[in-house]
């Protein structure tokens, strides 16, 4: 059993610094509006879970946080998203640099068709973050260590990343994203392709990672949201219906729609 995701009773937690802030964020795919005026504070060193039925806009919102929607031609984002008080949609802002600060882990593990070592070394190399082999070795080791994968792969760093099991591949992708030392990690259904044991390991890892990073996770599993997060936001029909401390959302939500969703009453 995982014992992570204990609810944070620390009153100081409520005053945690806001790392990212969404203000009146609206997203359109062509004429269709996918998100309506979302206001959400992402607190530092906190796991924020976004839940809601399919098509509710939670992934769309997540993708706004590092401008992944830019690559979709018909997609238009309105409103402001601040990272440390700075608007990330400023045209002058370099998205490559932004995505190094706000990393992402996807639903399906997607290691590069390269060796385990090169998967993790890829980011530091293209961002020119290390000088010399020994420094890069160290970053690769630390990242794999933090992702809880080092012990399993230390003797096979030259083997292809795609040869690992699904759970290991996902942890490799997490190692790859933390190798560039991001501040925020976005996770889109990171466990949906994994078995319960591999899922438990990732959940344990998420809880450890929040010491150093700020995490936003989209999940279809409400139990997972309850286990790993301290804050939970519920999306429905493109609206952020309710956001609050995870223990409050799962014991006594304010909004009837949240209540209906988490108790399985949505058609």
């Amino acid at each position: 059993m995982v014992t992570n995701g204990q609810q944070d009773e620390n009153p100081a937690h409520a005053a945690a610094r806001v790392k990212m802030q969404a203000k009146k964020v609206a997203v359109f795919y062509g004429e269709a509006q996918a998100l309506h005026d979302v206001d959400l504070d992402i607190r530092e060193h906190t796991v924020t879970a976004l839940i809601g039925p399919s098509g509710c806009g939670k992934s769309t919102f997540l993708r706004c946080l590092n401008r992944m929607n830019d690559v979709i031609d018909i997609c238009r984002v309105e409103g402001r998203i601040m990272l440390d008080g700075e608007d990330i949609n400023t045209p002058s802002l370099d998205t490559v640099h932004l995505r190094a600060r706000v990393g992402m882990v996807f639903q399906k593990p997607n290691p590069f068709p390269k060796t385990i070592y090169d998967n993790v070394a890829y980011g530091p190399r293209i961002h020119g973050m290390t000088s010399g082999k020994s420094e890069l070795d160290e970053v690769v080791e630390t990242s794999l260590e933090r992702a809880g994968l080092w012990k399993e792969v230390r003797d096979r760093l030259d083997e292809p990343g795609t040869g690992l099991s699904g759970g290991q591949q996902q942890r490799l992708c997490i190692a790859r994203s933390i190798a560039v030392n991001p501040e925020v990690i976005l996770m889109d259904e990171p466990c949906s392709a994994l078995d319960p044991i591999a899922t438990a390991r990732i959940e344990e890892l998420i809880d450890e990672l929040r010491t150093n990073f700020t995490i936003v996770i989209v999940t279809h599993s409400m139990q997972q949201a309850a286990r790993v997060s301290q804050r939970t936001g519920f999306f429905h029909l493109g609206e952020l219906v309710e956001v609050g401390n995870t223990d409050q959302i799962f014991t006594n939500p304010d909004d009837q729609r949240t209540q209906d969703y988490i108790t399985g009453r949505f058609g």
Binding site: M222, F250, T251, Q259, T263
Partner: peptide, 9 residues
């Protein structure tokens, strides 16, 4: 059933 909220109460 892993009940939550009003079901759990």
């Amino acid at each position: 059933r892993s009940p939550v909220a009003s079901d759990l109460r």
